[in-house]
Design a protein around this nucleic acid. Structure first.
Lengths: 200, 200
DNA sequence: GGGTAATGTGAGCGCCGTAAACATTCTAGG
DNA sequence: CCTAGAATGTTTACGGCGCTCACATTACCC
């Protein structure tokens, strides 16, 4: 039970990532400086170094919670998709996440990641595994790895192209339609399975 | 015919993008500072501001030549693809470009782009149009726009996932195989056309 | 040739990441 | 309980950055 003299913050480490997250949503990725985070957390510029080796380490921590939130979002779109439509809705959730939280998404994927961050590689591995599960469940006869890769890449690419305005996105619903259409095209690929499960 | 007293560089504007490009290849994107570019170009830190409004403007110029070089690369993979195999080879060129020049690729796609840069939007529009052409030629009966979007997204996503180590890439040839496999899956999608043109 | 626009310089502001030395608080072990 | 050390936070400082402004130099056009 802290909050006495305020010399020691009491719970800085998690507070830093939370603060960084807020700053990210409010002011974009360029504003995410270690000093700004410290300032907003009410602490001196050097304090964060007691908990994170450098700026990159903090950013990685933020990215890690981003991965978790993305995973939750996908799961809530559909807990365990096994039909093409369900797959499409998960794909949509992925792209919507990217569009609603562009700065976070860019931090997660838009810059080189240090491979020795366990928290981060674990989180991304989880997403990867999740996609693979979906692919295997939806198209049991297909090569799960290849299919999962293709699906993830397609969705990921859609997210990034929209994020960069390369696809003249307008409203979210237009984006959604486009995503669904693209997914639908891919689905038809694994013909045998798709014909059994797809609506049309 | 310059090179007298060296007060005036004589041709700074293009020299800046060239220098920036070199710096990018040698030292990565984080090292691409306006000051570093000016230093290497043998000019004072404030000089670039006579030619580019700010750092972002110079980066955009670099990105624009990146788009042109990417377009050349794709064209040289195959001038005007009209079969699935040719399409796959172009896709491979795209991913290889991303892996061989990661810093440039990230500058092109990994950060928000200002929409009022004519040079840049023109260049990206060219790539977009090129992809659409390929799609239309390879699968004349398909919805060219949707298909082009799906193909570009798939390839773009593959590039980025590899770039971020999300797909445990090993050798370039492994990457190539994966790209080809993914493309092949997508190709089968537009069933009617594909069955006429695909090798199997 | 001389005036004006284009181009480059220098000094300086405020921000950043990071390090080192120092201060305060927490926590175990005697 | 009390004290030594480990944690945690502060201060100060350094160099690099983007960017601006006043000024110097050069090029170009009448």
């Amino acid at each position: 039970m802290p909050s006495k003299g305020t010399y020691h913050h009491g719970n800085l480490r998690p507070a830093l990532v939370r603060t960084a997250m807020e700053l990210l949503e409010e002011s974009g990725e360029t504003a995410l400086s270690l000093r700004a985070v410290a300032r907003r957390a009410g602490v001196s510029p050097a304090a964060p170094y007691r908990h994170y080796a450098d700026r990159e380490a903090l950013v990685s921590a933020v990215a890690a919670v981003g991965y978790r939130e993305l995973a939750e979002r996908l799961a809530s779109a559909h807990p365990s998709p096994s039909t093409p439509q369900q797959l499409a809705s998960v794909a949509n959730a992925y792209v919507q996440f990217a569009l609603q939280r562009p700065a976070l998404f860019r931090i997660m994927f838009g810059e080189p990641c240090d491979h020795d961050n366990d928290e981060r590689v674990a989180a991304t591995a989880a997403v990867s595994h999740y996609v693979r599960e979906i692919a295997a469940r939806t198209f049991p006869k297909a090569d799960a790895d290849a299919l999962a890769t293709a699906i993830w890449a397609l969705v990921h690419g859609l997210a990034f192209l929209h994020l960069d305005g390369k696809l003249d996105a307008t409203t979210p619903s237009v984006v959604a339609d486009r995503v669904t259409a693209a997914i639908h095209a891919l689905l038809t690929a694994t013909s045998a399975d798709a014909r059994a499960g797809a609506a049309r």
